[in-house]
């Protein structure tokens, strides 16, 4: 793929019609593809020596993180800064939420500072949507409970498309703690919209009710499920919380659901391995696989910046007034 430096960004694209990015479910197929195409154009920007575009100059972006997240927050921060926005980080410990202020109060307070975009992560499903109803600027969901994490699904799709040259027609397996994963939900919605065959693979107790309506196929056996897949997406297991409660032990989990060479051998020979991070090596994935030649995990991180630049640009440069 030719990575020619981009001189302009949004200029070549029609205005993006959404004000917020809360859920993949809100996007039409052409909007998903539009965002991926925009992100593709952002990739070379980060590879240039002068990694900046002036498109968001004069705009204010607030990253409001009620849950700590080093990588997602830095990714959004770098994305905003590379587009010339003024980026302010607010994390929960320095906010007044811990003093009993409600989410809606916080929204009103921040709104009065007239930001152009709020990037919000919150532990409760629906919290970002609620906040978006109370502010006058664009809102990007950086993860809300077990609901959605739309930019993760977009960056995963971009990574797949760059490695496979296409998305539709592929078979993608998502493995692990589906029940508690917003990444799984956003990916299932996005991949479903792009006509990908999706499989979820997990022990029954980590599969949420009704999952058969969201994924093309459901497996509880990893080797069965990985047969013939083009992409293996591993999910993080919150093993500190899960051990003894949702699963008996990490070693049993790893034995049956951890991705090692033996299990990966069931996938297509050119299958790629993905993980949204942060990884638990030796819990859901063998370190040798995580760092091996089939792993595209660091590419995902790079695509994360490109996708977030594209989303910020699409939401803020359209005619929203």
């Amino acid at each position: 793929m030719a990575d020619t430096p981009a001189s302009t960004s949004s200029g070549d694209f029609p205005p993006f019609r959404q004000r917020h990015l809360i859920s993949i479910a809100d996007l039409k197929q052409h909007e998903i593809i539009d965002l991926l195409d925009r992100a593709e154009r952002m990739v070379p920007v980060s590879r240039q020596e002068r990694k900046s575009l002036p498109t968001l100059s004069g705009k204010t972006q607030i990253n409001l993180f009620f849950e700590p997240s080093t990588r997602t927050q830095s990714s959004f921060e770098i994305a905003g800064k590379r587009l010339g926005a003024l980026v302010v980080n607010m994390s929960v410990k320095t906010s007044s939420v811990s003093k009993g202020e409600t989410l809606v109060d916080t929204a009103a307070t921040l709104n009065a500072m007239r930001p152009d975009v709020l990037v919000v992560r919150h532990g409760a499903a629906g919290a970002v949507e609620l906040l978006s109803q109370k502010v006058g600027c664009s809102v990007i969901n950086a993860g809300d409970g077990a609901h959605e994490h739309p930019t993760q699904a977009l960056l995963d799709a971009l990574t797949i498309r760059r490695h496979k040259g296409r998305i539709s027609g592929l078979t993608v397996a998502i493995c692990g703690d589906i029940a508690n994963s917003r990444v799984a939900r956003s990916n299932l919605l996005l991949l479903g919209a792009l006509h990908v065959r999706t499989r979820v693979i997990a022990p029954r107790n980590l599969l949420p009710p009704g999952i058969e309506h969201l994924a093309t196929e459901v497996f509880t056996d990893m080797e069965e499920g990985l047969k013939g897949v083009d992409v293996v997406m591993m999910l993080r297991l919150q093993h500190e919380r899960a051990s003894g409660k949702m699963i008996p032990s990490v070693r049993e989990y790893y034995r049956f659901y951890g991705l090692d060479a033996e299990k990966l051998a069931f996938a297509n020979p050119d299958a790629i391995v993905m993980h949204p991070g942060p990884m638990n090596r030796g819990v859901e994935i063998d370190p040798a696989i995580a760092d091996g030649s089939r792993s595209v995990i660091t590419d995902q991180v790079e695509m994360g910046v490109a996708v977030r630049m594209a989303v910020l640009d699409a939401l803020l440069s359209g005619d929203q007034a």
């Binding site: 809300d144 959605e148 009704g210």
Partner: peptide
């Protein structure tokens, strides 16, 4: 209620 709708919303059933 536990079910598909709770799953879609990411809420515990």
């Amino acid at each position: 209620n536990d079910g598909l709708f709770a799953t879609v919303l990411g809420l515990k059933g």
